[in-house]
C-alpha cells in the first residue's frame, strides 16, 4: 500500500536540475527523514509535492487510485496532504487565532460568508493553540511573535487541519520544523511528530540535525544534486559511503 509516491519526477530551474528523476514512496504511518546537503533539492521536492511549484515531468501518486501529472495547491487538503514551510509563512498581519481559524473554516465563498459551526472552530483553535502554548497569545498579530513561537504557530496550523479533517488528512510534510528552536520547543515539535505518527499519519521530515533524524525517523531518504543517493533505516542510510561523501566531501 502506498499513500504518497513519486515516479521519475523532474524539475529544472534554468539549467539547474533541482530535482532530477526522483522516484520515492513514503511509508504510511511512519516518519520519513528527508535529508541531504544544502541545495540538494529537499525543499524543491516538497514544493513539487504540494503544488507550490509545477514539476516538468513525472507523476505523483496519492493513495491507490490518484495519479497526477500536476497538482493544484487548493486540492491538497482534499488529497489529505499538508505542510509547513522552512521560511515560516504565516498570515503576518492577522491575529494568531485567525491564523488557525482560516485553515478550518469553509472553503467556498458562500459558506465562508454564512459560516456555521463557529463554536466548533473555536474549540479546535483553542485546543491546538494550547497544545503549542500559544493560546495566551491568540490576539497578538502573528508578525509580533518570536521566531520560535512563529514556528510553533505553523505546527499548530497543521494540527488544526488534523483535528478538523482528521480522517482525510494522512500525510504531513515538515520542512525543517526544528531549525533554530530552543530545547523546550524542540520537545513540543518532536512530541507533535510522534503524536501524528501514533495516529497513523505519514510524516515527512526535512531536517539537518542528524541526532533528531536518528531519534525520530523510521526511514531515511538522502538526496544530493536532485537525486536519491541512499535510502533505508537511519543507521543504514547514514553510514553509506556516498552519503558521508555528499556531506563531507571526498
Amino acid at each position: 500500500m502506498t499513500i504518497l509516491r513519486t515516479q521519475n519526477i523532474h524539475k529544472n530551474f534554468g539549467g539547474v536540475k533541482a530535482v532530477d528523476g526522483v522516484s520515492i514512496a513514503f511509508e504510511p504511518g511512519k516518519i520519513t527523514g528527508l535529508i541531504g546537503p544544502n541545495g540538494s533539492g529537499k525543499s524543491t521536492l516538497i514544493n513539487l509535492l504540494t503544488g507550490m511549484t509545477a514539476f516538468d515531468n513525472g507523476l505523483i501518486y496519492i493513495g491507490e487510485h490518484t495519479r497526477l501529472d500536476h497538482i493544484h495547491p487548493y486540492d491538497l487538503p482534499d488529497f489529505g496532504i499538508t505542510r509547513t514551510f522552512q521560511d515560516i509563512r504565516l498570515f503576518e498581519q492577522m491575529p494568531v487565532l485567525d491564523n488557525i481559524l482560516i485553515v478550518i473554516t469553509s472553503r467556498n465563498v458562500l459558506g465562508a460568508l454564512f459560516e456555521k459551526h463557529k463554536k466548533y472552530h473555536l474549540d479546535i483553535a483553542e485546543k491546538v493553540l494550547r497544545q503549542v502554548g500559544l493560546w495566551e497569545k491568540r490576539d497578538c498579530l502573528a508578525h509580533d511573535l518570536s521566531y520560535g513561537q512563529r514556528k510553533l504557530l505553523e505546527i499548530a496550523r497543521v494540527l488544526a487541519l488534523n483535528e478538523d479533517g482528521g480522517e482525510v488528512l494522512h500525510t504531513i510534510l515538515f520542512d525543517e520544523p526544528f531549525a533554530g528552536l530552543f530545547p523546550e520547543m524542540i520537545k513540543i515539535v518532536s512530541e507533535t511528530l510522534c503524536l501524528l505518527r501514533s495516529q497513523g499519519k505519514t510524516v515527512v521530515l526535512v531536517e539537518h540535525n542528524m541526532d533528531i533524524i536518528r531519534e525520530l525517523s523510521d526511514h531515511v531518504i538522502v538526496l544530493d544534486s536532485g537525486q536519491v543517493i541512499a535510502e533505508g533505516t537511519p543507521a543504514h542510510a547514514l553510514s553509506q559511503a556516498s552519503v558521508i561523501e555528499a556531506y563531507l566531501g571526498k
Binding site: 487548493y74 509563512r89 504565516l90 498570515f91 485567525d98 472553503r107 467556498n108 465562508a112 459560516e115
Partner: peptide
C-alpha cells in the same frame, strides 16, 4: 464573516492560503 478572514489571508500570503484548500482566484 469568515469570508473577511479569507480575504485578508489572500492579502497576507495567497500561495499558502491555496495550500490550505482555497481556490483564491474565485475569491
Amino acid at each position: 464573516s469568515s469570508l473577511g478572514r479569507v480575504l485578508k489571508g489572500i492579502r497576507e500570503d495567497e500561495k499558502v492560503l491555496a495550500i490550505f484548500g482555497y481556490n483564491t482566484e474565485v475569491f
